[in-house]
């Protein structure tokens, strides 16, 4: 079992066997999470700091719970409100953090590459909890775990990713992961919500929802940010829902046993029909949340093993 990384900054640096390693460990943490006593000790004695430069309730809670279940001392900092407003730069923040000697640092930042920059400057292991439009690796990993558990495998599946691909780090990480695990990835979006050069990613691209969903094993919906709805990227909410919102009629084009996923939080009636989202036979949205905690436990566990394997003075 190998997972030879100091940080988890994206899916891009991961090999298929490392992804499998992480998911296997996560499976065990799913089991642990379903017991009455949920505690493990992998992170005992370690300090985990969550720094969120962008609003997030779900991801932050998920990381916090994951750390606590593994016995870490967890501190969460909401950075929009604090020193950033006072003009402190990211590098200053890193220096301040170093002085507190954290072992694991979980970071979300509104700008692509900001987590990489921070990782270069701090002495601890860094986990990217989403940076700009770049990557959100733990989301892709939890999606992969959800798919593997529902479908029994994580290869040779047809996965349709639908919605705002252009602005989505979830989409980028998922495309990278699913492609690396040899799945067929289809992107379904209006042309204004597709990023440039997407044909170079080894994916199929379509603007037609029915064509995109045809015979899909997995339908992954993306959240459409409110600020993109009014005329800037799409004409209106209702036109978007009509053409790209997932409902039973469109889903009928996918395989009969296709699962429906959404990274949350959902806009019911914009990108997904409310009833469909709640349909326990099709929707795995609740499982995704559960898998999120397990995957984050696995990721932090693996990074902590690498941390502990190193003599203290080498961690500079």
């Amino acid at each position: 079992m190998r997972f030879d990384h100091r940080h988890l900054l994206g899916i891009d640096p991961l090999r298929p066997d490392e992804i499998v390693t992480l998911l296997d460990l996560a499976d065990r943490y799913v089991a642990l999470g379903r017991q009455r006593e949920k505690h493990a000790t992998s992170l005992a004695g370690l300090t985990q700091v969550n720094m969120f430069f962008e609003n997030s309730t779900r991801t932050q809670a998920s990381f916090e719970l994951a750390g606590k279940r593994l016995g870490a001392d967890v501190m969460s900092m909401s950075m929009q409100a604090s020193s950033i407003k006072k003009g402190e730069t990211l590098i200053d923040t890193a220096m301040t953090l170093n002085a507190m000697h954290p072992d694991l640092l979980v970071v979300r930042h509104p700008q692509s590459g900001a987590v990489d920059l921070l990782a270069q400057k701090v002495r601890c292991a860094v986990i990217n909890a989403g940076d700009g439009r770049h990557e959100h690796p733990t989301q892709a990993l939890l999606d992969a775990l959800t798919i593997r558990r529902a479908k029994g495998r994580l290869h040779r599946l047809t996965v349709a990713i639908c919605g705002d691909i252009a602005h989505s780090r979830v989409a980028r990480s998922n495309i990278l992961l699913l492609h690396r695990m040899e799945n067929r990835v289809r992107l379904v979006a209006p042309p204004t919500l597709l990023p440039a050069g997407i044909d170079g990613f080894g994916v199929e691209v379509t603007h037609d929802m029915r064509e995109g969903l045809k015979d899909a094993d997995v339908v992954m919906m993306l959240r459409l940010q409110k600020e993109r709805m009014d005329g800037g990227f799409i004409p209106s909410e209702r036109e978007y829902y009509h053409r790209y919102g997932l409902d039973a009629e469109k889903l009928a084009h996918a395989k009969e046993d296709a699962i429906v996923m959404h990274p949350g939080p959902m806009n019911r009636g914009v990108e997904i029909d409310g009833t469909l989202a709640d349909d326990i036979n099709r929707s795995v949205i609740q499982e995704q949340v559960e898998m999120g905690v397990a995957v984050r436990m696995a990721a932090m566990d693996l990074l902590a093993r690498n941390l502990r394997a190193r003599p203290t003075e080498v961690i500079t």
Binding site: S112, D131, R172, A196
Partner: peptide
């Protein structure tokens, strides 16, 4: 500049 690289890095292009 718009293209595969900018998209991979998530940079506005």
């Amino acid at each position: 500049t718009s293209g595969k690289f900018a998209t991979l890095r998530g940079l506005p292009s």
